[in-house]
Design a protein around this nucleic acid. Structure first.
Lengths: 331, 331
DNA sequence: ATGAAAGCGCTAACAG
DNA sequence: CTGTTAGCGCTTTCAT
């Protein structure tokens, strides 16, 4: 087994000296330093992180928990996180939970178990008390998806206001029969986006129909296609659709395309997120742009606040969003 | 500090007994067991993984190194990896390198440093000797991108044969002026796909022109759009394009769309990977389907072979691929 | 069935 | 400038 003792022995010095060389303390004589470095590179020695982290009780590792990486939405947030984390000389471990509570728990335990110094959490914890308890003792930031009832710092956007804006845009374009393709309402964001949708309709006295309110437990293209199929079979067909995710909206557009229908002439479509693909569709997708990179970098900054000054409270933030108008709603 | 000693003290037993309870050894008296469990849950104790892993010298953690998560191509491979890894009671840490050698090195060192038990590597290592050296001592599998000169197990597809097939399809459809939108030729896959492209053209005696051979250092939609812009300005405009990645192909399609051109009437386009988005474009994209999930799960199986029987060699594999013909090449 | 104690690899306080 | 040593939290062998 190659360890610090072996290196010390080979170099004819003590383990303390080797440790000093490894950590660049500068208190080692030039000659000794070189001697030790030579042995290190000859043996190809790398200090064992477990020993070091155990001793230092820090890992300089941040865990980022996402439901999935198949939604490009997360890619840009993670990029924002990475850039800040790297600047602080930490590294990111990305973990996917598939929104399964048991997997969330296993990963969150890594923080308790000192494997990582903190966690940015983008998934709704089903066991709310567990998450709160973790956050009480360790650095935890909620990102995008959050729970207002908990006392855990979060960063997100105002989903209600954003979806209100999206639906109002459709209303402004003259639509009166507007459907919503939602995801699963166990998610806070889904509830909020529905709230904004309803608010806009109510404000303008427009009809709210059950057959225009669709839910999806999965968030993928197929779900969007299926939802559109249902809407096209509705007794009273909507003329516009608000999808709470670009993924769903793109699936919906595809389904229209398959049926020989055009957006926005036949049905207008608005998405949410502004993932890079949203501008690649034909027609290009009108959508709500979330400041994804900013969300990620803010989340990371908040986490470091918590790591560096655990006792000072970190304030939560809701960032601005922007309606990006493209062809799918514009004649 | 909450540790095994504290628990032992509170429960009035020795640390050894607590350890036995934690690890379910079954050799503890029922009564003692319950007493200890009560204390554990009261104190909300979680064993420190650093201590445990240091002692056991295993982490039950697998690292997966990808260049980026913004290409959905990786999402499905990672899914395949996850499913196998989870079955073995391990967990996956995903790390993004942006194809930067220094970042690759930092993460790869985590294997040497005993933080993880093995690594699946999907990025070209710039420091080839370093990777070989790591693979000589620790479990390493190359996935998708690999280096034939190294003695490291890999799993991928036959890129040359696949791109030959894609280009031959275009030839069969009557095209004689065929361009290639490639990525950076530092990548093995890029070199191989170009090779297949050239082979098909040569075999059919078709012209090979420099202005039809484009390279991109970045792999994103913009790169695809830019490449298409260049091709549309070529002295001799191609009638078909082979893009080595769906991302590039979709960007190219978008650019055509912006210029009022249709695929395949004006220019036919073939992509590569068959990411989910490829069937969502309008027109839908003809592409080479890689068995992404299978690639991932095979990679994980190979890694566990290496972990469980380090001295037995693991044989590399090239999996089959399939040409998926869609609207972008079919009248 | 339980406890005492060694030791995994490392760092840092202390001594010299 | 360098060495000795305690101890981070855990598991396991050896006693009892």
């Amino acid at each position: 087994m190659l360890n610090i003792h072996k290196v010390a022995e080979e170099a004819g010095v003590s383990v303390a000296t080797v440790s000093r060389v490894i950590n660049n303390q500068g208190t080692v004589a030039k000659k000794t330093q070189e001697k030790v470095e030579k042995v290190i590179s000859r043996l190809n020695y790398e200090p064992n992180m477990l020993g070091r982290n155990l001793r230092n009780s820090e890992s300089r590792l941040i865990m980022v928990l996402v439901p999935t990486i198949s939604n490009p939405f997360y890619a840009q947030i993670v990029q924002g996180i990475e850039d800040i984390v790297r600047k602080e000389n930490y590294n990111v471990f990305l973990c996917t939970t598939d929104s399964e509570p048991e997997r969330e728990k296993v990963f969150l335990d890594y923080v308790r178990q000192k494997l990582t110094d903190g966690v940015i959490f983008m998934d709704p914890a089903v066991e709310v008390e567990m998450l709160q308890d973790l956050a009480n003792r360790y650095p935890v930031i909620q990102c995008c998806e959050y729970n207002e009832d908990l006392n855990i710092p979060y960063i997100s956007i105002d989903d209600t206001q954003a979806s209100y804006k999206a639906v109002k845009h459709l209303i402004t374009m003259g639509h009166e029969k507007i459907a919503i393709i939602n995801s699963d309402e166990t998610f806070q964001y889904a509830r909020n986006r529905k709230k904004g949708y309803l608010k806009a309709l109510e404000e303008y006295g427009l009809p709210i129909k059950d057959e225009w309110i669709l839910k999806n437990s999965e968030l993928n293209f197929e779900a969007g296609q299926n939802s559109m199929r249902k809407l096209l079979r509705a007794d009273d067909k909507p003329t516009a659709i608000f999808a709470v995710s670009d993924i769903l909206a793109i699936g919906a557009l595809k389904r229209m395309n398959e049926e020989g229908l055009q957006a926005p002439e036949d049905i207008a479509v608005v998405g949410f997120d502004n993932i890079p693909f949203a501008s690649m569709t034909n027609p290009a997708l009108t959508t709500i742009a979330q400041p994804m990179y900013e969300i990620g970098s803010q989340a990371a900054k908040m986490l470091f606040q918590k790591i560096n000054t655990p006792d000072e409270p970190v304030s939560s933030t809701l960032l601005d969003n922007e309606l990006i108008i493209r062809e799918s709603t514009l004649g």
